[in-house]
Amino acid sequence: MSTQTAEVVKTEKSEPLFSKKNKKLLTDPLDSNNPITVQVLGICSALAVTVQVKPAIFMALGVTFVTTFSNLFISLLRNTIPSRIRIIVQLSIVATWVIVVDQFLKAFAYDVSKQLSVFVGLIITNCIIMGRLEAFAMGNKPFPSILDGIGNGLGYGIILVVVSVVRELFGSGSILGFKLFEATGIPFQGNGLMMLPAGACIVLGIYIWIQRSINGYAEE
């Protein structure tokens, strides 16, 4: 029995780094298993930080960093974590990485860190991260866990960027602070709804609608 499992491990190890299965870990969360639009996790911050593109990009990078490293560390420790306190162990590791991100933003991107304010800290409570730790990193090897973390972080990020592009364009008439409408000479009055979280809700709803009609996905 034990030799059998050893063999399984061996064959798994000889699997190429970017096998089909591993690639799927990276690409699935971008579309068919997107954490926001399909699993409907992490909606809160997606509505809050998408008024402008720049903070949204930084938020996406921050979350990707946290999911990747939390996944990696939990995966490394997965066999040693006592099951009775596993949630609190996960939480402290997530919180540690979130604070690291927060401190780096404060040091190197001060204006963005002010705009994101409390939402960086709130990455700790982002369901995507705890969800991936429980569902994936606790039962998988470090490398697939890293891929899963990157995939889910980017899956979250892609939605943030798409929503923020729409909101900044129609809310303040600019992209990354560049006044697009003014530059092209089209008269444009910013849409106040796009500046509010409700605007994000609508954009996100439309995104989900388009995505589901393309993928043919339906709620059971």
């Binding site: 006592p82 590791i93 690291v100 780096f104």
Partner: peptide, 28 residues
């Protein structure tokens, strides 16, 4: 075991955070 594990996790998290905070304090 659980107790020792908790202490170890806390210690390493705290160590990392103090290093990061101290290292970046001046810039902040």
């Amino acid at each position: 075991y659980i107790l020792a594990y908790t202490v170890a996790v806390t210690f390493f998290c705290a160590l990392l955070l103090s290093a990061v905070t101290l290292g970046l304090k001046e810039r902040q």
